[in-house]
Design a binder for these strands. Structure first.
Length: 434
RNA sequence: GGAGGGGUGGCAGAGCGGUUGAAUGCGCCGGAUUCGAAAUCCGGUUUGCCCGCGAGGGUAACGGGGGUUCGAAUCCCCCCCCCUCCGCCA
């Protein structure tokens, strides 16, 4: 969320950011509305507080008069306060409306972009930052993960459809084992080699929590919402562990000495895939339920750019250990996510498609999420001034299903068997899936 | 689900209708003392919002929401969470 005071003081900067992001006209127009509402809010707050001040003074006087037994004067003072209170009530009602509209508008504004983000009009303007590995060459026509998996009997999409329809999968035998192997390999790598603390968090969260990370209010359609309230509030299946983990310390004040905090969390992820009908319909590339290991950082603003690079490297190292060719993309202004100030996508090579596909998205959110969830930290430095908003970052390390898919395709052999990458063998118990 | 107990500042713990944002203790930060340290003493030590260049001023918050009152941490109502016991269950 952007601070309404920032919007009010630098509306031009906010508008320029929206234009770079290719925001719609209504959003751009909302900037003027925010400026006006912020001014109205301040005036109302001022009058309310002045009147409260008067009320407090008079009430104290009434107390004194009562002690003296001066009933008449006390009564007349009471009438005075009563009139004042009536006015306060009116102001509070108006103020409530103004503040809720203001907050709603601000919640729908995307984050400011980092200076290093290239301005672009869409996916094609993303920048290739680096490429690692070389695409495998085959002396036969490489098959898709669907053909490979079904022939091996480790993947069954038809039966998955009997259970829940399209965009689900059933993994069988070594397929299921490979999924678990990847989960453990990722979590172990992050905890043992990259220094993360493992987290296992709820897979269902309240709407307010999803608002904290930015899924709500704007992207409600992308999540699965529970039909019944959960512990009294509306709730959603998490679309990523980013949501519960980033919200762990919401409404708390951390100490700077606790930063950076770094967590790695495995979770299933549930996505409605609204609006992607017809896209990637074959296979397990785009499904309603998948597994992911997510890395989450809480950092000081000063350290977040460096943190972003480290986080991205941690995801890249997973791909490198697995020997999967990939490239790192720097997303442009039109393609970057709503709350991100800067984002790297990692894309893995898929032989059957002869193109790179996303397996990780590593983003720096700046103070955007911290502000929404009222997460702060207390600076250590003497002078211990105001609390500040930390920066939050997150990245996939990695999306499990897509990695599994990439392994099947990149490690396939002419006979349809799959060589198990070296690092997974301890988890798999076999060298080849056949 | 049933019965009972409890939620106050970083922690512990008073307050139970009037200048109490909140006693006291601990912790923490300054300072004094000391060769240094411990002990001791003095001072400070929540967060948000509004006005102000600043100094500073105002306002709000004692789990959350609503109510009573001139005035509520203190009274009333609803909800949430935690603890203990019973039931149920993975």
């Amino acid at each position: 969320m952007l601070d309404s005071r920032l919007v009010a003081s630098e509306p031009d900067r906010i508008r320029a950011n929206l234009v770079a992001r290719r925001a719609d006209d209504a959003t751009i127009a909302s900037v003027d509305r925010i400026v006006a509402l912020a001014a109205e809010r301040n005036a109302l707050v001022q009058e309310r507080d002045d009147r409260r001040s008067a009320r407090n003074t008079i009430s104290a006087e009434i107390g004194a008069l009562m002690k003296q037994g001066n009933r008449d004067q006390a009564e007349s003072k009471k009438a005075e306060v009563g009139a004042n209170n009536a006015r306060i009530a009116v102001i509070e009602t108006t103020l409530g409306d103004v503040e809720s509209e203001l907050r709603d508008l601000c919640l729908r504004l995307p984050n400011l972009l980092d200076d290093s983000v290239p301005v672009g009009g869409g996916e094609d303007d993303n920048v290739v930052v680096k490429t690692w590995g070389t695409a495998p060459t085959f002396d036969f026509k490489p098959k898709s993960h669907v053909d490979l998996g079904e022939a091996l009997g480790i993947l069954d999409l038809g039966r998955a459809a009997k259970l829940a329809g399209a965009r689900f999968s059933v993994l069988i035998g070594k397929g299921a084992r490979l999924e678990r192997a990847l989960i453990n390999f990722f979590v172990d790598t992050h905890t043992e080699e990259h220094g993360y603390t493992e987290i296992l968090a709820p897979y269902i969260v309240w709407g307010s929590v999803a608002e904290g990370t930015g899924q709500l209010p704007k992207f409600a359609a992308d999540m699965f919402k529970l039909a019944e309230p959960l512990n009294g509030q509306e709730a959603y299946l998490i679309p990523t562990a980013e949501v519960p983990v980033t919200n762990l310390y919401r409404e708390e004040i951390l100490d700077e000495s606790d930063l950076p905090k770094r967590f790695a969390a495995f979770s299933p992820c549930f996505r409605s895939e609204a609006g992607s009908a017809g896209r990637d319909t074959r296979g397990i590339l785009r499904v309603h339920q998948f597994h992911k290991v997510e890395m989450v950082w809480f950092s000081t603003p000063e350290a977040s750019a460096d943190a972003h690079e480290q986080l991205t490297r941690h995801a890249e190292q997973c791909l490198e250990k697995l020997g999967l060719p990939y490239r790192r993309m720097l997303l442009c202004s039109a393609d970057i996510g709503f709350g991100a100030t800067k984002c790297h996508d990692l894309e893995v090579w898929l032989p059957s498609q002869e193109r790179y596909r996303e397996v990780s998205s590593c983003s720096n959110y700046g103070d955007f999420q911290a502000r929404r969830m009222d997460l702060r930290y207390r600076p250590t430095e003497a002078g211990k001034g105001k609390t500040r908003f930390p920066h939050t970052l997150n990245g996939s390390g990695l999306a499990v299903g897509r990695t599994l898919l990439a392994i099947l395709e990149n490690y396939q052999q002419a006979d349809g068997s799959i060589v198990v990458p070296e690092v997974l063998r301890p988890y798999m118990g076999v060298d080849v899936i056949r």
